[in-house]
């Protein structure tokens, strides 16, 4: 049986377009807003969602996602609560692929086996763990894959050809090409470098290859989705949430939350339309 991720990418391909993935951090700024945001992303036409598990020391992330993690943790977010958000999401949206993204330590402390079991039970489709390179596969990735979770691999400009087989050995679902040598939300990659990287990786895998890091506009998203099999937008969305928290449009918390969700959904709607244009 094909998984939700495979089905979603096949559907986009059948529509002759790349896929759109959006990243938000669970609990930014609170769990209820995250649940509303997730619904908004589905309505706005995303093909898959990356839900960030907040960590106090996100070493590969730029200022936007660092701040999102801190807002979330300050609001009392935990890994248990993140899994709860995922479980609720799955009940509302049986088909939308949901991938958890984050760092290893909170999972390690939660307990690897317990985490894998709870993630599967919650209806999570895959994991992206930034600080678990293939050299540390036996820790979490192999048991997770055995339990039916997709292990989404990060490939970067520094991952040379001889390294790719090791990276791709346990990869499933899709491959995430980090298009810049850097942290999230900063520089953007040139079109030629994305196209070259796509060809280089395509030689070694049949999995969909999505591209992320530094994609901020509908135009960039559309171009990236054309040059590879999909685009992931994170910091640009998280910035809208940050702005809504810092500059409330209404003194009423619920109304402000709704306004943040509307703004995010409108922006993601533009991304989605651009990719389908």
């Amino acid at each position: 049986m094909a998984g939700r991720i495979d089905t979603a990418f096949a559907k986009a391909k059948a529509e002759n377009r790349g896929s759109l993935g959006v990243f938000i951090t669970a609990g930014d700024p609170d769990a209820a807003t995250t649940e509303a945001l997730l619904d908004g992303l589905v309505d706005a036409g995303v093909d898959f969602i990356e839900l960030g598990m907040p960590f106090s020391d996100p070493m590969a992330d730029g200022p936007a996602i660092q701040a999102a993690s801190l807002r979330s943790l300050k609001g009392g977010m935990t890994l248990t609560a993140t899994l709860e958000i995922a479980r609720n999401f799955r009940q509302r949206h049986p088909d939308m692929p949901l991938v958890l993204m984050g760092y290893y330590n909170p999972i390690y402390i939660y307990g690897n086996d317990r985490f894998i079991a709870d993630a599967v039970a919650a209806g999570v489709d895959g994991l992206i763990i930034v600080d678990l390179p293939p050299e540390e596969d036996s820790e979490l990735c192999i048991p997770a894959r055995d339990a039916g979770l997709n292990v989404v691999r990060l490939i970067t400009p520094t991952s040379h050809d001889q390294r790719l087989p090791a990276i791709l050995a346990q990869a499933s679902g899709f491959v995430y090409y980090v298009s810049v040598t850097g942290i999230t939300g900063m520089a953007s990659a040139a079109a030629t470098s994305i196209a070259d990287a796509y060809q280089r990786i395509r030689k070694q895998t049949d999995l969909p290859i999505v591209t992320g890091f530094g994609i901020r506009t509908p135009e960039q998203a559309a171009e990236t989705a054309r040059l590879s099999d999909g685009a992931v937008v994170g910091s640009a969305v998280v910035d809208i949430i940050a702005d809504g928290v810092a500059n409330p449009s209404s003194p009423d918390a619920a109304e402000n939350r709704a306004a943040i969700v509307r703004k995010v959904a409108a922006f993601v709607g533009e991304l989605s339309a651009a990719i389908r244009a």
Binding site: M59, A60, Y104, V130, D131, L132, P133, E135, E136, R153, L154, I155, T156, P157, T158, S159, H160, R163, I167, V178, T181, G182
Partner: peptide, 20 residues
């Protein structure tokens, strides 16, 4: 060889840094 001191140590870094 994997940089482990008992269960400790290892190489828990992002892929960008791994080749370096």
């Amino acid at each position: 060889e994997a940089g482990r001191f008992g269960i400790h140590g290892g190489r828990f870094v992002a892929e960008t840094l791994m080749p370096l």
